[in-house]
Design a protein around this nucleic acid. Structure first.
Lengths: 274, 274
DNA sequence: GTAGATCCGATCAGATTCGTTCTATTCCGA
DNA sequence: TCGGAATAGAACGAATCTGATCGGATCTAC
């Protein structure tokens, strides 16, 4: 990441690289926290290209202002959504596959796009990767996706209305579906609980299924994000048929036969290497 | 001799060394900042062909006028590195009062109610107090309010749709207002940035104001939550007139004359003791 | 519960930057 | 022509920032 240097050297030929102001670095740290929820000291130091000592000083200063919470080994934002479980938990989730999938999927998004993003832990990771884009319009029914993008002023985030389903922090119901009715975007990035070559995406909940269908219906192309643990799994309600798939982003652990089958049906595959 | 390369021949050929006026140089500095966002002192000195001392003087003058922000090693435009997203800091202002107000306001809610809750740090606290209620239906445009209630299975949380305003984590815009159009609930619990006896509730943002009005319009009774730091303050856009107030919940630090005036206009007062 | 590894805080040193003071130059009016 | 005022550059001590190191605290694994 690091998104490159903010200040381009459009002029001043031969001038040495401008030193990064402390305030600049601190803002960048906050941005990183806002995007990633919890970041280790080492990662921060690497991202801002400073020593860990310096970052530690910054964190201390930011903590004094009440802008962040420090933890052993890193920092988090204070009292943001359910990123509570923080650090230890996040690290142990072994979200390596999801992170890789999210990275790859983010490369399918271009500046200026209008996209739809569904709920799910993978799509949430994906949303965090979008922070570096500009002029993006993102429609979602997931509070966590919205939250991940709330700090990015260059991204317009639109939430569907609807009834909150607390367990997944997403909006469902007729209001949610209705609010998507008149919408048309380029791509939908959705996930689910199960994915088979025969029945496509599926979820155990009918309300969630209804919104998932509406999300896909609002997009020209459907991009499915699914790690290998979901592939071959079938749950109660089918949400999106394979015929509607345009892209599948998964990881190298996915069973080859299912991928072949999907590929044979015209789905473009993107396999992330962890 | 100050070297041959001084103020010299960058322009005005034949006119014989016109000095670069200070105002001109400063204008140039601002332009450079505007283009590059953040520029080091050295670069500035090089760009305007003056010594660093001179540029330093200019920067000091420009800072005094509020046109730039100085940093160690350079300068930026005021907006560039602003640490505005002070939501965390806002929550710390009068935190004890807000908690007491939230407690008191929660006693105005009965099991089985349908209510509307607006955005704000106070209403967020208020929402947390609602978790103990049952059979409640809560409509809100605040992600933080929704989040506070996400874990309560006996409360139905409905979010309006709309565009996410990241700084306050609330949904605004025409979609938000439209989704409230057909709604009717018993009470609306709203807050704002300022409250006077003459102009009622106000907020600095027009979009927020629009939704606030729609929230109040969906309820039979309006309950205003405002700690003493907001009373007597008037900001740009009026959202809800005093005539629409039914209850005001505030703390003991509120100025008596304003309270009297409001009471005289038929507003029922609830003063929380911290 | 102990041992090992990691992380944190404090102190020190090097480098850069800042503010102040002093000096030189130019412009303008008498 | 002379002198005052304003501006720009130079020099030096003070303050700030950054990175390195080391002892102590904390966390994790066994």
């Amino acid at each position: 990441m690091t998104g490159g240097q903010t200040v381009g050297e459009t002029q001043a030929p031969g001038a040495g690289r401008r030193p990064v102001f402390a305030a600049e670095r601190r803002q960048r740290i906050i941005e990183l926290l806002r995007v990633n929820g919890a970041v280790s000291l080492r990662e921060l130091a690497q991202a801002v290209r400073s020593s860990e000592v310096t970052v530690r000083r910054d964190l201390r200063a930011l903590e004094a202002e009440g802008l962040i919470n420090r933890h052993h080994g890193g920092a988090t934002l204070p009292g943001e959504l359910s990123r509570e479980p923080t650090y230890a938990q996040k690290a142990q989730v072994a979200a390596a596959e999801k992170a890789a999938i999210a990275d790859l999927a983010a490369s399918l998004v271009e500046d200026g796009d209008a996209i739809v993003v569904g709920p799910g832990t993978t799509t949430q990771e994906f949303a965090r990767r979008l922070a570096r884009h500009t002029e993006l319009a993102v429609v979602t029914n997931s509070l966590l996706v919205a939250q991940a993008l709330a700090g990015s002023p260059r991204i317009e985030v639109v939430l569907t209305g609807g009834t909150l389903r607390g367990s997944i922090h997403a909006l469902v119901g007729s209001a949610a579906e209705r609010s998507l009715a008149g919408l048309r975007v380029r791509r939908a990035f959705v996930s689910g609980n199960g994915l088979t070559a025969e029945r496509g995406l599926s979820t155990p909940n009918t309300q969630v299924a209804g919104v998932d269908r509406a999300l896909a219906g609002a997009a020209e192309e459907v991009v499915v994000l699914a790690d290998h643990t979901k592939i071959g799994v079938d749950t109660m309600v089918q949400t999106i048929a394979v015929e509607r798939f345009d892209h599948l982003v998964t990881d190298a652990g996915a069973p080859g036969d299912v991928l072949d089958e999907l590929s044979g049906r015209g789905v473009r595959l993107h396999v992330a290497r962890v």
